[in-house]
Protein backbone atom coordinates (compact mmCIF):
# COMPACT_ATOMS: atom_id res chain seq x y z
CA UNK A 1 0.00 0.00 0.00
CA UNK A 2 2.90 2.33 0.50
CA UNK A 3 4.39 3.89 -2.56
CA UNK A 4 7.53 4.86 -0.72
CA UNK A 5 8.99 3.59 2.49
CA UNK A 6 9.14 6.07 5.28
CA UNK A 7 12.43 6.45 7.07
CA UNK A 8 12.72 5.67 10.77
CA UNK A 9 13.90 9.19 11.36
CA UNK A 10 10.68 10.48 9.81
CA UNK A 11 8.53 8.10 11.86
CA UNK A 12 10.34 9.03 15.05
CA UNK A 13 9.80 12.73 14.39
CA UNK A 14 6.09 12.18 13.73
CA UNK A 15 5.76 10.13 16.93
CA UNK A 16 7.56 12.83 18.88
CA UNK A 17 5.22 15.49 17.52
CA UNK A 18 2.17 13.33 18.22
CA UNK A 19 3.27 12.99 21.85
CA UNK A 20 3.96 16.73 22.06
CA UNK A 21 0.50 17.42 20.63
CA UNK A 22 -1.50 14.94 22.71
CA UNK A 23 0.23 15.16 26.09
CA UNK A 24 2.06 18.47 25.81
CA UNK A 25 -1.03 20.13 24.39
CA UNK A 26 -3.17 18.77 27.20
CA UNK A 27 -0.66 19.90 29.82
CA UNK A 28 -0.69 23.38 28.31
CA UNK A 29 -4.50 23.48 28.30
CA UNK A 30 -4.64 22.22 31.90
CA UNK A 31 -2.08 24.80 33.05
CA UNK A 32 -4.11 27.48 31.28
CA UNK A 33 -7.32 26.30 33.00
CA UNK A 34 -5.72 26.32 36.48
CA UNK A 35 -4.02 29.67 35.91
CA UNK A 36 -7.30 31.28 34.76
CA UNK A 37 -9.21 29.69 37.66
CA UNK A 38 -6.83 31.43 40.06
CA UNK A 39 -6.18 34.67 38.18
CA UNK A 40 -9.61 35.77 36.99
CA UNK A 41 -11.33 38.26 39.31
CA UNK A 42 -14.56 36.27 39.47
CA UNK A 43 -16.31 34.13 42.02
CA UNK A 44 -14.46 30.86 42.60
CA UNK A 45 -16.81 28.59 40.65
CA UNK A 46 -17.17 31.16 37.86
CA UNK A 47 -13.42 31.50 37.40
CA UNK A 48 -13.06 27.70 37.27
CA UNK A 49 -15.57 27.54 34.43
CA UNK A 50 -14.19 30.59 32.66
CA UNK A 51 -10.78 28.90 32.60
CA UNK A 52 -11.95 25.42 31.67
CA UNK A 53 -14.25 26.30 28.75
CA UNK A 54 -11.65 28.02 26.52
CA UNK A 55 -8.95 25.51 27.52
CA UNK A 56 -10.16 23.20 24.72
CA UNK A 57 -9.41 25.97 22.23
CA UNK A 58 -5.92 26.28 23.72
CA UNK A 59 -5.47 22.50 23.33
CA UNK A 60 -6.58 22.60 19.71
CA UNK A 61 -4.35 25.57 18.88
CA UNK A 62 -1.41 23.76 20.49
CA UNK A 63 -1.99 20.64 18.36
CA UNK A 64 -2.23 22.69 15.16
CA UNK A 65 0.95 24.54 16.05
CA UNK A 66 2.88 21.38 16.97
CA UNK A 67 2.31 19.91 13.53
CA UNK A 68 2.88 23.16 11.69
CA UNK A 69 6.17 24.23 13.21
CA UNK A 70 9.44 23.44 11.53
CA UNK A 71 11.00 20.82 13.78
CA UNK A 72 9.84 18.43 16.47
CA UNK A 73 12.24 20.11 18.90
CA UNK A 74 10.62 23.49 18.33
CA UNK A 75 7.25 21.82 18.83
CA UNK A 76 8.24 20.56 22.28
CA UNK A 77 9.81 23.85 23.34
CA UNK A 78 6.81 25.81 22.09
CA UNK A 79 4.40 23.67 24.11
CA UNK A 80 6.39 23.20 27.29
CA UNK A 81 7.66 26.76 27.88
CA UNK A 82 4.18 28.36 28.06
CA UNK A 83 3.00 25.38 30.13
CA UNK A 84 5.68 26.02 32.74
CA UNK A 85 5.10 29.77 32.70
CA UNK A 86 1.35 29.32 33.26
CA UNK A 87 1.93 26.65 35.91
CA UNK A 88 4.38 28.93 37.73
CA UNK A 89 1.89 31.82 37.72
CA UNK A 90 -0.83 29.46 38.96
CA UNK A 91 1.46 28.24 41.73
CA UNK A 92 2.33 31.78 42.79
CA UNK A 93 -1.33 32.76 42.85
CA UNK A 94 -2.26 29.69 44.86
CA UNK A 95 -0.67 28.20 47.95
CA UNK A 96 2.80 28.86 46.59
CA UNK A 97 2.38 32.61 46.89
CA UNK A 98 2.00 32.41 50.67
CA UNK A 99 5.27 30.66 51.32
Amino acid sequence: MKTKTLSWRYRGAVLSRALAAIFGGYALAAAFAVCMARALPLERSEAVLAGAIPSFLVYCAAVVWVFATRTAFRAWVGVLVPTFVLAAIAWLLGAGGNL
Binding site: A33, V34, A37, R44, A47, V48, G51, A52, I53, F56
Partner: peptide
Protein backbone atom coordinates in the same frame (compact mmCIF):
# COMPACT_ATOMS: atom_id res chain seq x y z
CA UNK B 1 -18.01 19.31 18.83
CA UNK B 2 -16.99 22.10 21.16
CA UNK B 3 -20.16 21.93 23.24
CA UNK B 4 -19.76 18.15 23.41
CA UNK B 5 -16.49 18.76 25.23
CA UNK B 6 -18.12 21.33 27.52
CA UNK B 7 -20.84 18.88 28.62
CA UNK B 8 -18.25 16.70 30.35
CA UNK B 9 -15.95 19.57 31.20
CA UNK B 10 -15.71 18.46 34.82
CA UNK B 11 -14.33 15.10 33.58
CA UNK B 12 -12.17 16.26 30.67
CA UNK B 13 -10.68 19.41 32.19
CA UNK B 14 -11.19 19.20 35.95
CA UNK B 15 -7.86 20.76 36.95
CA UNK B 16 -9.13 24.25 37.70
CA UNK B 17 -11.80 22.70 39.89
CA UNK B 18 -9.26 20.40 41.57
CA UNK B 19 -6.89 23.31 42.18
CA UNK B 20 -9.57 25.52 43.72
CA UNK B 21 -11.79 23.02 45.52
Amino acid sequence: TFTGLVIFLWMYMPWGMVAQY
